[in-house]
């Protein structure tokens, strides 16, 4: 249920840090454009986001039931129907919305919290020891059983899923960002900034965070794909929101109604959707990580 974080994203970046400036980002974009996999991933993610926004235009919200039960793809149902005769295409389209929402919301929370903790830790050495211990502790927890426990106790709903996923994703973000931030706060220009002002928040906001922004971008994508996997996993275990369509819920209902054996389309299509989102997110983060590495930029 957890996507491995690309190796590259874990390493502290030894290269000079791009501290803003449009020249660096233009160089990154130029390098990125040369990676077909990255572009393809970006396109797939774009399409998924588009589908989630345009869901009402693409398919009516799945009715509560239909008369054509378990029909294979074709004949008015492009992806077939489920055990209650509902159109699978509609379920997947509306499920995209929930998956994208979970991905965006859970990663936003995890990133915001994780980055804040990481930067504070790096900037205030006294806090760092405590934060390090907390992060290590949280990372060593068995995530899946805890997610199941929390989701079961609090009760299934989309907001529960988002909070649960975010709660278990931020330490990963903190770890990556912290290692980068530790390198940044020791750089001469931060010392220079300290001489200019005693407003630490300004220093953090103006200099530290922008310096770690590239790793944050990578974390966003990875955390988002992990959130989708976790949400789908929880929904498959029956701990998702039973009233909102999600890809995991389609799988869960196929399993619960015993239709998995005969109706291959009920498992194939939602799985493909999950695969598309997770794979493209992972590839995108790798491509971006490569692209922002100055070594790969044209000289």
């Amino acid at each position: 249920m957890t996507a491995p974080i690309p190796e590259a994203a874990l390493e502290p970046i030894p290269e000079p840090i791009a501290t803003g400036g449009s020249r660096a980002s233009r160089a990154t974009w130029r390098a990125f454009r040369k990676q077909p996999l990255g572009l393809l991933s970006l396109a797939i993610l774009g399409i998924l986001i588009l589908i989630s926004i345009a869901a009402p235009l693409l398919a009516p919200y799945p009715a509560s039931y239909g008369t054509d039960v378990l029909k294979p793809p074709g004949g008015g149902y492009p992806l077939g129907t489920d055990a209650l005769g509902r159109d699978l295409w509609g379920e997947i389209v509306w499920g995209t919305q929930q998956s994208v929402l979970v991905a965006v919301a859970a990663s936003a929370i995890a990133i915001a919290f994780g980055t804040l903790v990481a930067v504070l830790g790096a900037y205030i050495p006294k806090l760092d020891a405590v934060i390090g211990v907390v992060v290590d502790l949280t990372l060593s927890l068995p995530v899946l059983p805890l997610m199941i426990l929390v989701a079961a106790l609090v009760g299934p709903s989309t907001s529960t899923i988002i909070l649960v996923v975010a709660a278990f994703s931020w330490p990963e973000v903190t770890r990556i960002v912290r290692s980068q931030a530790l390198a940044v706060v020791k750089l001469p220009y931060i010392d220079a900034a300290r001489l200019m002002t005693r407003n630490h928040l300004w220093i953090i906001g103006r200099h530290v965070v922008p310096a770690v922004a590239p790793v944050i971008v990578v974390s966003v994508v990875v955390t988002a794909s992990r959130a989708v996997l976790s949400a789908a996993g929880l929904a498959f275990l029956g701990l998702g929101d039973p009233t909102t369509w999600s890809w995991g819920r389609i799988l869960y209902e196929a399993q619960a109604s015993g239709a998995m054996v005969s109706a291959w389309w009920l498992t194939l299509f939602p799985s493909l959707a999950i695969l598309a989102l997770v794979l493209s997110a992972t590839l995108l983060s790798i491509a971006y990580n490569d692209a922002r590495n100055p070594r790969n930029h044209d000289r």
Binding site: S64, P156, E253, A256, G258
Partner: peptide, 16 residues
């Protein structure tokens, strides 16, 4: 949620 048949018909009850 372990009762798959009931889980299905409650949706119909809600909608109607």
């Amino acid at each position: 949620l372990q009762d798959s048949v009931t889980s299905q018909w409650v949706q119909l009850v809600k909608d109607s």
